[in-house]
């Protein structure tokens, strides 16, 4: 079971899209995960396995304890998310 956190600046738009897309992708690959979405300040102090966000937002997130980080360029591309997220899951499993 992976703990996944998706983060955007506001916390009601893109992070929620990422949460839904990540949920679909992980399920399709047979991974169990609990996924939460939040904004930058909400991310502070979180302890997770995988953090998913964009570069601009990642630079401003402080004090997050995560094993792996997935940085996306295109926040709506399921393809990009899948290509970056699945190797990270495999690594964490291995």
């Amino acid at each position: 079971m992976f703990k996944v956190l998706t983060v955007c600046a506001v916390g009601v738009g893109s992070s929620l899209m990422l949460k839904m897309n990540a949920g679909t992708i992980l399920k399709n690959h047979g991974y169990k995960a609990s996924i939460e979405n939040t904004n930058m300040s909400g991310a502070s102090g979180c302890r997770v396995d995988i953090l998913i966000t964009t570069e601009d937002v990642y630079k401003q997130i402080k004090n997050v304890n995560t094993k792996e980080v997935v940085i996306l360029k295109n926040m709506v591309s399921k393809k990009e998310l899948e290509e970056k997220l699945i190797p990270v899951c495999q690594k964490l499993e291995g």
């Binding site: 009601v12 738009g13 601009d56 937002v57 401003q60 926040m75 709506v76």
Partner: peptide, 19 residues
């Protein structure tokens, strides 16, 4: 404040704020 964050995908911006 957070330059570029609302640009979701190539050529697409989605401005929004908290409810």
């Amino acid at each position: 404040e957070i330059k570029g964050y609302i640009v979701l995908a190539p050529g697409i911006a989605m401005p929004h704020a908290r409810p």
